[in-house]
C-alpha cells in the first residue's frame, strides 16, 4: 500500500501543476488505497489549489494558469466527491456573489467564487449583469452571511452603492457583510460607500471573508 502522504502530495501536485492526468491518476490511487475521500480532497486537492492561489498572489501564475489548476481540481473532485461519508448537516457560511448590473465581465467573480468554494463556503452565484433587487432577493432567500459584488468597469461602480442602499432600505445591512472587488475598485472606494471589505484578488477575498465572519461572531458573543 502506497504511503498516504505520497498520494496526497501527488493530488496537490496535480492541481498546482495544472496536470489533469496526474490528478486523475492520484484520485483513483487514493480510492484504491482506501484513503478517506474527504481527507484526499482537503489535504490533497485543496492544498494544491491553495498553493496555486499563492503562486497567483506572487504573480507567478495569472488567470489562465489559475483556471487550469481549477480544472484539474474539479477532475479530482468528480472522482472523490461521491465517496465522501457525509456527516450530519454541515453548517457552512453562505455567500451570494455576482457582477453588478451593467457589466458582464465575470472572470474575477468566478475566481473569487472558486477560491471561496475551496475554502468551504456555500456559494450562490447570480452570474453577471445582476440588478440590485436580485442580490437582495437572494440574500433574503438563503439568509446569506456575505454578499460579494464585482465589476471591471469604472462606469458601473456606482451600482454597488445601489445594492448597499437597497440592503439598508430592507433592513438587511446589519445582517449581511458586503465585500467588493474588481479592476477599478479600491479600499478608498469601499470606505466611501460603506462596504465591509475591499479584496484585491481572489486569495485576499477568502482571507477577508474568514476575517469578517470571525469578527462578526466575536461581536455577536
Amino acid at each position: 500500500m502506497a504511503d498516504q502522504q505520497i498520494i496526497l502530495d501527488r493530488l496537490a501536485e496535480g492541481v498546482r501543476e495544472m496536470d489533469e492526468d496526474l490528478t486523475l491518476e492520484a484520485s483513483h490511487e487514493a480510492l484504491d488505497n482506501h484513503v478517506d475521500a474527504l481527507t484526499a480532497i482537503n489535504q490533497g486537492l485543496v492544498v494544491g489549489m491553495n498553493q496555486a492561489g499563492l503562486l497567483y498572489e506572487q504573480e507567478e501564475y495569472f488567470v489562465p494558469e489559475l483556471l487550469l489548476c481549477s480544472d484539474a481540481m474539479y477532475t479530482g473532485l468528480d472522482i472523490l466527491s461521491p465517496h465522501i461519508q457525509r456527516s450530519s448537516a454541515e453548517d457552512k457560511h453562505k455567500v451570494v456573489i455576482g457582477v453588478v448590473e451593467g457589466d458582464t465581465h465575470d472572470i474575477g467573480k468566478n475566481l473569487v467564487k472558486l477560491m471561496l468554494e475551496v475554502a468551504d463556503f456555500e456559494i450562490y452565484d447570480l452570474g453577471r449583469d445582476v440588478p440590485p433587487a436580485d442580490f437582495i432577493g437572494k440574500v433574503k432567500e438563503v439568509g446569506a452571511d456575505i454578499v460579494c459584488l464585482s465589476t471591471l468597469m469604472s462606469t458601473t461602480m456606482d451600482r454597488m452603492v445601489d445594492v448597499i442602499e437597497l440592503l439598508k432600505k430592507e433592513g438587511l445591512r446589519e445582517k449581511v457583510l458586503v465585500m467588493i472587488g474588481g479592476g477599478p475598485i479600491s479600499q478608498a472606494f469601499a470606505d466611501r460607500i460603506g462596504a465591509d471589505a475591499y479584496s484585491e484578488n481572489a486569495i485576499a477575498a477568502v482571507a477577508d471573508a474568514k476575517r469578517l465572519i470571525a469578527l462578526k461572531k466575536k461581536v455577536a458573543v
Partner: peptide
C-alpha cells in the same frame, strides 16, 4: 466564455 478562452491559452 472568457474562462474557456483563457484556459485554451495553456492547453
Amino acid at each position: 466564455e472568457p474562462m474557456v478562452f483563457f484556459k485554451a491559452m495553456g492547453k
